[in-house]
């Protein structure tokens, strides 16, 4: 796998949320506005890259890796948890508004399966450079997914798109133009499940179509 593939895989092919379905809990809970999604993306990207870096650094020394082999999950969790706590404290101090709206879901990054999953499956087996790229790719892929969900949910549920703070794109005119109102249902968690489910269905449909095509190509080749 070259570096470019390694970087691009997080967006579509191995997208953590849309394909691997990891980390769905915070993704469904905080995607009520684009601002929340962006804040979560930043926090997540920070934790993801740093945890991948540190863990691949630890594992790069063979002796140390053998030493922590029986307790490696505990070590990973300690590292990830302290990174998350640092993010949490920084956010509470410097971005209190965002901290309030993200609430408990910042701390939940700790048990977000993607971080631990990448640490175990990728970072502990690959070089530091690759792991950093993997972290960035996964972080951006996750951000991409939750930003899409939050765009859909906020637009349908509120009629607005909150980019950051007071920078709000008001699209309610679009709704009144066709004579309807926004549907607050989509800002509830049930609406989140619905949006995620529909996106998953669309991605699956596209995938199936691609597979069918490649099968037909193979048949013709034979």
């Amino acid at each position: 796998m070259n570096k470019k593939d390694n970087f691009l895989k997080g967006f579509i092919k191995e997208n953590p949320l849309f394909v691997l379905l990891l980390g769905a809990c915070p993704a469904l809970a905080i995607t009520t506005s684009l601002e929340n999604a962006l804040g979560m993306s930043l926090a997540f990207l920070f934790v993801m890259v740093l945890s991948n870096t540190i863990i691949s650094l630890i594992s790069s020394s063979k002796k140390l890796r053998e030493l922590i082999e029986p307790v490696r999950i505990a070590v990973y969790i300690v590292i990830i948890a302290s990174l998350v706590t640092i993010v949490e404290m920084l956010m509470q101090a410097f971005l209190p508004e965002l901290f309030n709206s993200l609430g408990v879901f910042i701390s939940l990054i700790t048990v977000n399966c993607i971080v631990l999953g990448r640490a175990e499956a990728f970072a502990s087996k690959n070089s530091v450079g690759d792991s950093v790229i993997d972290g960035i790719s996964m972080g951006l892929g996750y951000s991409f997914a939750i930003i899409i969900i939050s765009l859909i949910r906020e637009f349908l549920g509120n009629g607005t798109i909150t980019i950051w703070g007071n920078l709000v794109l008001d699209l309610n005119g679009l709704f009144t133009f066709i004579g309807i109102t926004p549907i607050p249902f989509f800002t509830t968690s049930a609406g989140a499940f619905m949006v995620l489910g529909l996106i998953l269905a669309i991605i699956q449909a596209i995938k199936n179509k691609k597979e069918e095509k490649s099968k037909e190509m193979k048949k013709e080749a034979k």
Partner: peptide, 9 residues
Amino acid sequence: ITGLTLGLF
């Protein structure tokens, strides 16, 4: 030693 390493981390 493994335990101590964990403690160190």
